[in-house]
Amino acid sequence: MSAEIRDAVRTFILNNILRRPNYKLGDDDSLIKGGLMDSFSLVEVQLFIEETFGFRPDDVDMTVENMDTVRMIADYVAAHR
């Protein structure tokens, strides 16, 4: 199940934020600290979670500390959905 969430998160980030479907994005690659996306993109991640998983993450949770990798985002979804 969590692998499915990770793949959904990864696909969203590759297609909608990075706009490079073929980029090799690992589960633990740092997204914001690694310079792949800026913190403005977290609002898009939040909207994606709301649309796809049916709950809206708390605004205060949308931080680099909580959401900096595919795994972190997927784990957050798994824990809160």
Binding site: S30, I32, K33, G34, G35, M37
Partner: peptide
């Protein structure tokens, strides 16, 4: 080449206000 690009991106992110 992929690793070099990754490094460039990461260092710029951590040392400046912007993201490439």
């Amino acid at each position: 080449r992929f690793e070099i690009a990754r490094q460039v991106r990461m260092r710029v992110a951590q040392q400046t206000e912007v993201t490439l």
